[in-house]
Amino acid sequence: MDQISLAVNGRTDIGQVREENEDSIRWHACADKPFAYIVVADGMGGYTGGATASKLAAETIQTHLDNLLKHTFIACSPEQQQLILRATLIDAINNANTALLNTKNRNPQLANMGTTLVVAVMWHNLLIVAHIGDSRAYLWNNYGLQRLTRDHSVVQEMLDSGQISPGQAKQSGVRNHITRALGVSASVEAEINSWKLTENALLLLCSDGLTEYLDDHAIERILATHRPALECVYRFIDDANKLGGRDNISAGILEYASRPLPRMHIEEQNITQRPRSPDVTVRKLQR
């Protein structure tokens, strides 16, 4: 069995152009259990609407995750825990979507609001990521950088169908047009995937205010070289601002570290009584 250490950090920034920050971010690492999460939401629909949508979504997801580690969850098998984690994320996302729709109904001035969402949850070595829209999750380890999410966007669909090249996608006038969001329709379909981590890794969650300026190569270079690792969030935001900062920028880092538990030291004892039979001695040492 390995000893797992989880640490998280996050930051959101208004950028250089916007008058209000429509991003929201939440993060948490449990002090006494191998449990941590990051939530990033990028709101849309005008200054007040976008900020309201992202905050409401992030707070709803946060509340569900903060209530997860109840006695029944801890007592379950790893297979059951994985199912519970997935079901919790689905319920949280559906409840966030309902909360946004109800808020819009009560406040006509917020009729156009909505938000993207990306959330990552770690429990022991299990990683679960859910996302809606174009906020992203990346995993970096000694094998390099892996993008864990695929944008729900018009440009991504054009890339998938071969209509445009990656170079053309960066210049596209519709690169910020998303095809899925929270708070837009009565039902919402999040994409949810899970992985078992087998080595030390860094997880990055971010809004498109970061990926607008930093491509995968730039992200990988920072994650691979900037230490302490949790301070990458400041480096990411500083770099995006230096390159223009036209949008709000949010970044969250989760550091996963695993090492073998130290082997128990068995001291030899002097036995003065009558020697035991070999099989009894073996049983005693293995107890």
Rank of each mutant, 00 (worst) to 15 (best):
L210M: 11
R227M: 11
T211Q: 06
Y138I: 07
D134A: 10
E59Y: 04
T63G: 13
R26K: 13
Q82R: 11
T98P: 00
G46D: 05
A53S: 09
Q286S: 11
I164N: 04
L223V: 10
T12N: 09
A58H: 01
E157V: 11
D160V: 07
D13V: 04
I253G: 06
T198S: 12
T211M: 05
S250I: 02
L56A: 13
R263T: 13
L145I: 11
N270V: 14
N94W: 00
R150Q: 14
N107H: 12
R276C: 12
G133M: 05
A31Q: 11
T63A: 15
L197F: 03
A7P: 01
S277D: 13
L230I: 13
L89S: 04
E20S: 14
K170E: 15
L145H: 06
M158C: 11
D66F: 00
G252M: 05
S54C: 11
R26P: 02
A75Y: 00
D247F: 03
V188L: 08
G114K: 02
G162K: 00
L127P: 04
W140I: 10
P78N: 04
N95G: 05
G245Q: 10
C30M: 07
C232T: 12
Q80P: 00
N67D: 15
Y47G: 11
Y256A: 07
R246A: 14
A29H: 07
T98N: 12
G144C: 10
E157L: 13
I4K: 01
S258H: 00
I222S: 07
N107W: 01
K55I: 08
S135R: 00
L6S: 08
Q80E: 15
R180W: 00
C30I: 03
A240N: 06
Y234H: 10
G162V: 07
L69K: 03
A190R: 01
I93P: 01
N102D: 15
N67Y: 06
G144L: 09
Q81D: 14
S161G: 05
V39G: 03
R86Q: 15
Q3T: 11
V282R: 13
R287V: 05
H265F: 09
F236K: 05
L85S: 05
A251W: 00
R227N: 12
L254K: 01
Q81S: 13
Y143F: 03
V40F: 00
L127H: 04
V233R: 07
Q3Y: 04
I222K: 01
G244E: 07
C232S: 15
R86T: 15
G183S: 07
I249H: 04
Q3S: 14
V154H: 06
D160G: 11
V155N: 02
M122I: 11
Q3H: 08
I61N: 00
S5C: 08
T149N: 01
K55E: 15
N9R: 09
D23C: 06
L230R: 07
N107I: 06
N193C: 13
Q163G: 04
N95Y: 01
N176H: 14
E212I: 02
A190E: 03
L101C: 08
E191R: 07
Q81E: 13
N270K: 08
K70I: 14
M122H: 04
A57I: 04
E191S: 14
A41T: 05
E189R: 06
